[in-house]
């Protein structure tokens, strides 16, 4: 469904070159629950950004849904992200002036859906993530865990091909983090949505059905586990 082949990415930071990804091969299938684990600076964010069409590789190829995305125009990449990819970020990244409901509805409004459908689907999704009754709260009136649930709902409501979550629990205490993870896992098995998340937390890795270990821009192990 998603494949990356010999992906390289180098950043030039002033004088120094940082070889963030050094030939990544990765195939992601349907309904996977995949963790990209590795220490800070190992290239997790870079890999997720490239898979998510936010960033482009220096060399190598990325295919999404059987479609080659490498080399496509920025304009086209926006459309791919809009329609097919859901994002969850470490620091939630909700729009502070919008309510929980509006933050979720945004995804659908951008797709140009009709008002009634937006309402129906957003409310259902907020209920799915356990935020019934908090739809009208702004992020400032939600806990970190609740904000991350809104972010998960925002990513999922458009029924994307894949949800990419870059260290979704890093800003949460372990208990709340675990709750968010359980929620994602439940949604994965119930809705069949593919989740790829990055982490450097041992506890979080435990939840993964498939675990890729990243080290200095290379995948050093790729292990499928049973539930």
């Amino acid at each position: 469904m998603i494949s990356a082949q010999v992906v390289h990415k180098t950043y030039i930071d002033g004088e120094t070159q940082v070889h963030a990804l050094r030939g990544i091969d990765l195939n992601i299938g349907e309904a996977e629950f995949l963790a990209i684990a590795g220490p800070s600076g190992s290239g997790k964010s870079t890999l997720l950004n490239i898979i998510g069409c936010i960033d482009t590789p220096d060399s190598g190829e990325v295919q999404i849904d059987g479609e080659l995305v490498t080399g496509r125009k920025t304009r086209d990449l926006v459309e791919i992200r809009r329609a097919k990819i859901g994002f969850v970020f470490q620091n939630f990244n909700l729009i502070p002036v919008l309510t929980a409901y509006e933050n979720v509805a945004m995804s659908l409004a951008l797709l140009g859906l009709r008002e009634a459908e937006i309402r129906e689907r957003s409310m259902t999704m907020l209920a799915e993530v356990g935020l019934q009754g908090m739809e009208d709260r702004r992020p400032s009136r939600l806990s970190g865990g609740q904000q991350q649930r809104v972010a998960v709902a925002r990513a999922l409501v458009k029924e994307p091909l894949i949800v990419l979550a870059d260290e979704p629990t890093a800003n949460l205490d372990s208990e709340t983090g675990e709750d968010v993870l359980k929620l994602m896992l439940e949604l994965n098995s119930r809705l069949g949505t593919t989740f790829v998340f990055s982490t450097h937390d041992q506890m979080v890795m435990e939840y993964a059905r498939r675990l890729c270990l990243l080290h200095d821009g290379l995948i050093v192990s790729d292990e499928h586990r049973s539930a």
């Binding site: 329609a83 990819i85 994002f87 990244n93 995804s107 951008l110």
Partner: peptide, 13 residues
């Protein structure tokens, strides 16, 4: 960062 998030989730420039 908020603008970055919006662009990431597919809001056009």
């Amino acid at each position: 960062r908020e603008v970055g998030m919006m662009r990431a989730v597919g809001v056009r420039n």
